[in-house]
Amino acid sequence: MSTPTKNLSDAGVSIWLDDLSRSRIITGNLADLIATRNVVGVTTNPTIFAGAIGSGSDSYAGQIGDLARSGATVDDAIFTLTTDDVRAASDIFRPVYDATGGVDGRVSIEVSPDLAHDTEATVAQAKELWATVDRPNALIKIPATLAGLPAITEVIGAGISVNVTLIFSLERYAEVIDAYLAGLEKAKEAGIDLSGIHSVASFFVSRVDTEVDKRLSAIGTPEAEALKSKAGVANARLAYELFEGEFATPRVAALREAGANVQRPLWASTGVKDPALPDTLYVTELVAAGTVNTMPEKTLEATFDHGVVTGDTITGNYDDAHAVFAALAGVGVDFADVTQVLEDEGVEKFIASWHELKDTVAQALAGPAAAASAV
């Protein structure tokens, strides 16, 4: 049966769910989304795990009790809980991974956001996460901060597959691509099979509109108002234009000859923030072959219910996207400042969620531990 999510998949877009919890795993919900919604991967982040573990779900209670009785620290408990979830989800997606030759069936787990500005610590934790999850279809998420760029090269160079997250600007995206290619070159020199290394570059969409539209409202002219809700899609379309150019170079051709994979663009932050906008906007307007769209469940269900997929909506719209940015500059929007603010806020929000998660787990550990000591 043809459905909008199947049509999206047929258009070359890999649908990944931007959520994971133990209840999704043990109830069969995740397997059901694979079967009925064409979901072929999962992304996680500190906010998602904070919500899952802090929701009061009984699905974590038994393990938290065991960890408390074993004397686990908060950091050790979080590491165990999250890597266990990602390992279990990776096993559920393993048939997809095998069927797609390793392209899909991917489950992402992020290094601690506290390490976003520490290259060496990011590399160390990425390697530890990869070894602990111990599944070939895992992806280690590393933020595209300035400190994250050399970490990406080092981790890719060690043969580890990476999801580069928190990309907002074309300039930073170009640096991410270079970091990926440098990592592949490093892996090749080390004799690592390049065909086993995969990567996606997560370009955030809705947050761009949120920040730009706030600035357009402050400007307040009719010209500014007319540009609202256009920057996010235009920015992503120009990212795809950059992707097409950067992965058509002799440097890439040499790596592809050695078995390397391209780093696919991934559209993240695709839940619509403005209720006045179509709830499938960042899905139907960003369709192109070889991309990933990672969706919150609400966006996934909206797409399945009423998304209209008309084929490629990116490659024929580059001129329009460039015109949007020329107009934004014309009314006084400093887009370089927009993207720096978004990167800084993105890291800060993940750090806040991470510490919320630590507080939640600390309280959960204290309960069983206190009960055990009273016996």
Rank of each mutant, 00 (worst) to 15 (best):
T5K: 07
V13E: 01
I15A: 09
S21R: 09
R24I: 07
T27G: 08
T27W: 13
I34M: 11
I48H: 04
A50C: 02
I53Y: 07
S57F: 07
D58M: 08
Q63R: 15
A68N: 05
V74F: 06
F79C: 06
F79S: 13
T82R: 07
V86I: 03
D91H: 04
D91V: 01
V103S: 14
V107R: 02
I109Y: 12
V111W: 01
V111H: 08
S112T: 13
D118N: 06
A124I: 00
E128T: 09
L129K: 13
N137L: 02
I140K: 08
P143E: 12
A147H: 13
G148M: 06
P150E: 09
E154N: 08
G159F: 02
S161C: 05
R172H: 11
Y173V: 08
E175V: 07
I192R: 02
I192K: 03
L194N: 02
V200P: 03
V200H: 03
A201F: 04
R207T: 04
R207D: 08
V212R: 15
D213M: 02
A218T: 15
G220H: 11
T221K: 13
P222H: 14
E225K: 15
E225Y: 14
L227K: 13
G232K: 08
G232N: 12
L238F: 04
F243T: 00
A248F: 07
G259M: 00
W267Y: 05
T270N: 04
L277I: 07
A288I: 03
G290C: 02
L300A: 10
T303M: 03
T310K: 00
A321K: 02
F325N: 04
A326F: 09
A327F: 00
F335E: 06
A336E: 09
V347G: 12
K358Q: 09
D359G: 12
A374L: 11
